[in-house]
Design a protein around this nucleic acid. Structure first.
Lengths: 289, 289
DNA sequence: AGCTCTTATGAATCATTGA
DNA sequence: GTCAATGATTCATAAGAGC
């Protein structure tokens, strides 16, 4: 029984990642600061400068990713001057020049998107989840994300997520709990490249960057237990929290010190085995089961 | 009561459009032949040559579109060599250089997408509907596509009949249910930029999976009665057929002669007022109402 | 535990105001 | 003029209260 490690680092991922070995991670899943957001931390990246800002970090991510690994980039371009800005699609082209393979583009349909009304535009209800790979032979565990067929499936999906994260669902690698096994009799199907997830608005602690179910789905799909997951823009630590519950090692990097407290709260105390804190980084090492 | 015209032209839209006046159309909505399709007609456009092939046609479309008009391009890049090809996003960048504004990208979620299974990829369940404009002041009739609010609709359906819930619950996600018109007086909401439409499976003659509801939604959104709609890759004439029913004038251009018969069948005979056929083009002129 | 109703809250976007 | 900050608009969800 290996101990699952969950490490948090404070700092710019461009610098922190330089200390990591090449070919270290099985999955990188992150939602970087969007253009014109977090103006006080990343310097308020202008849309026109976004590609230039992101590319050196993408190069480091390419280095630390295993050849069999996957990089999931959750991002959405904003509307600027009445147009969709082009920095995201320009980034795709530039990352391919770095050596990335643009394998797939998943659509995250935000069922509860931000409200509003404008004469020339509807509400934006989707974001991109760009899949990049280092090689064509990447690991993919499709069975781990199979879903029940039928109308009742979507209603059960959210419940499924909750069950998975509860402690008493003693289960093996698949990550599926008891209740799911009841559904095994029924027909299961592979999902598509469209994800229907609602944002978590009710959290009073902090503004949820993305719902847990988003990194959860990709972690199940692209890693197995004891694999290594990286979130270079960890924020409040949602990705690492999910990775821990799913018995994956994880590394989170965040430039904002104030997120440290939030990340700490997100790790369930009962799961602590070891807690270390050094000057500029924090390690949670947990034994899972 | 104006007569509604529905004109079909045989030929390459690049040539046919040259005969049209500048600023002629209120809406262009089309689903062009995808890369590697129709190898015998358009010369078998390779993905690497797609941008080069499309750009001169895009230039003509820009010319014939009214300043207040909109161009909806339904397209999806295919997977080539394990990667998503980049011709679509490259096309966006090049069209902007031509003068197009990339106003929005709608997602068409195909609820019943093509079946299949691959070891490194899930089924592709979405396509892009790229919105381009000539100016920022384009016409948009949002009220024409309003849908019942999700919360209210669900309760309503639950109280009505448990039986017919099978499909078309049509929440605000932009799908339309059939009985939307019955709910007009109720609480309605504006849709989002994610469309939930099923592909039409029953089409025996035509392979295209272009459902009527797709052009219908955009025609309602971007035109009013007696406006002019263009489909430069008309195929079996779905767009023109829908335009006719909605009392919009339309022009369809198609390079394949064999689609003529299909287009003819798609126009309901009861709507004919005038039928002309010349050497290289066919005109249907219908009086609606 | 199951309902209903209420309330807060968003990776949003645009028009307006102010420096 | 350019640019940053503010206000208005709007709706799907979760959480909480009450029964």
């Amino acid at each position: 029984m290996n101990a699952i490690k969950t490490d948090y680092y404070l700092g710019d991922c461009l610098e922190v990642l330089s200390r990591f070995d090449t070919d270290s991670f099985d999955l990188i899943v992150t939602s970087p600061p969007y253009a014109d957001r977090r103006s006080k931390t990343y310097g308020g990246i202008k849309p026109d400068q976004y590609v230039e800002w992101f590319l050196p970090r993408a190069a480091e991510l390419l280095r630390v990713l295993k050849p069999s690994g996957t990089f999931i980039l959750n991002i959405k371009e904003k509307a600027v001057n009445g147009e969709r800005h082009t920095y995201v699609i320009e980034l795709i082209l530039e990352m391919r020049k770095q050596g990335w393979l643009w394998t797939e583009e998943f659509v995250w349909h935000k069922k509860n998107c931000y409200p509003g009304k404008w004469p020339n535009r509807f509400r934006d209800a989707w974001e991109r989840c760009l899949q990049f790979n280092k090689t064509k032979d990447f690991n993919m565990y499709q069975e781990a994300v199979m879903v029940p067929m039928g109308d009742w499936a979507e209603k059960r999906l959210k419940h499924l997520s909750e069950v998975d994260q509860s402690r008493d669902t003693s289960k093996v690698g698949s990550g599926f709990g008891k209740n799911v096994s009841n559904w095994v009799d029924r027909k299961m199907a592979y999902p598509t490249n469209v994800l229907h997830l609602a944002t978590e608005t009710g959290n009073r602690n902090h503004s949820a960057v993305f719902p847990k179910t988003l990194p959860e789905w990709f972690i199940k799909l692209f890693t197995k237990e004891d694999d290594w997951v990286l979130d270079p823009f960890a924020g409040a630590g949602t990705t690492c929290q999910v990775a821990q519950v799913l018995s994956r090692n994880s590394v989170g990097i965040e430039i904002l010190p104030q997120y440290y407290q939030l990340a700490k709260e997100n790790i369930k105390p009962t799961q602590y085995l070891l807690f270390e804190e050094t000057q500029d980084e924090t390690h949670y090492t947990t034994g899972n089961r």
